[in-house]
Design a protein around this nucleic acid. Sequence first.
RNA 1: GGCGCCUUCGUCAAGUGGUUAAGACACCGCCCUCUCACGGCGGGUUCAAGGGUUCGAAUCCCUUAGGCGUCACCA
Length: 448
Amino acid sequence: MNRIRTRFAPSPTGYMHIGNLRTALYAYLFAKSQGGDFILRIEDTDRARYVADAVEFIERTLAAAKIIPDEGPHHGGTFAPYVQSERMDIYKKYAEQLVKDGHAYYEETENGVAIRQKMPRAGETTFFDVLHGNITIANSELEDQVLLKSDGMPTYNFANVIDDHLMEISHIIRGTEFITSTPKHVLLYEFFGWELPTFIHLAPVMGKAEDGTVSKLSKRHGATSFNDLIEAGYLPEAITNYVALLGWSPKNSCQEIFSMDELIKNFSLDGLSKSPAVFDYAKLDWMSGEYFKAMSDEDFAKVADKYFADFDAPRKIFLSSLLKTRVAKLSDIPDMIAFLKNLPPFDLELFTNKRNKITPQKSAEILAPAIKILENVDDWTLDTLNEKISAFVADSGLKVGAIMWPLRIALSMQKVTPGGVTEILYLLGKKISIERLNDALQKLKVDR
RNA sequence: GGCGCCUUCGUCAAGUGGUUAAGACACCGCCCUCUCACGGCGGGUUCAAGGGUUCGAAUCCCUUAGGCGUCACCA
């Protein structure tokens, strides 16, 4: 049996959307699960679309996603070069052989000479796809496609076949958009007398637009590039994990959180789905949150560092313990902690809470003695604060929630805060805490 | 339009002739609670439609509809 070899063959556009990343992931997972090789090949035969540094961009993106090629432009390998624009001589040779054999012909144009593939007019071509079974397309649907462009560059449909054969690719994993051009490839393999690789055409990843419509992922629909997601503060592992499950599911298991090693261990082709999958931020958010929750406070503080740069080291660690259980993506952090830096405008409404039977008047009655107690706290630590407030609650005869409500509002002007009152007091420090409480108390009196 | 692919809860999906049609996210409710979150418990919602085949169909066949893709010297 031949060695399993898969490849990811992007064109260097400087943009890696999630659908592409998933294709690369599956090709990688399949190769690795079979002890095979994963090859990165750059298909840069369209000179008009060439983007500088795109190759490095692709390599960086794959590296971030922990998809590591065994062979590629900067990884070396016995079949180098892995950039198609550096393989022009090879394509030329094979195209000319096709002409010689009567399977292709020259075409004169104003820009130069091109070579076209001669398609059979009758009959049909069938190929086997692991996901879809046999697919048959009438040869009359096939046009005499260009193999070699007048600028000397091969077309995708040609270079692809030549390279996949020369690089000994055993399984071609790519998107469904190539299903209809596969017969042309198959004919080429037959002309050359080459063994056919195994085809696997993956269903597309769809995006949901704001109006709720669904269509193939693009910049318009969801702007879902790997890089955008990283920018938003999702962990690469979480993205990879989520993307793996968009179109694949493990056999005999309901596991959803997978490390890369686990993905490799569990991956199999028959877990692939034939139908399109819609990219869902809600689920990504959940999965991302699972990754954050699993982190230590220290690790979280490290990845979140730039989002709360204003705090000292101990406070960062403490903040991390509060934040890591309630964050979907790192960029959520600034809004969540903004109140610590700047108190939102006073809002009387917030001092009313039905469940705890709190009114502005009641709030004032609670704040006044609470301030006195806190003013006398010198050891401004979580333990002490907790202790003092608990004692205050016990003395007041009120419910815990009732006491906490006005305090939290006065300190944050928010119904929802990361952490409870003692945590906020601690983070704010004594001076600012007392200031905010006094300020709220004054305003409550005035407004009454 | 021709050709091709696809169609199980709102979303990701398990399921391959006999199941109460898994599980997860989201949603709703309850509990816990110092809000939120976390955690616990519970709930509703699904086999695109119509015909067959069969004792029996989400599973097999046909038709229809819808979605997607493709018809480039783009990949």
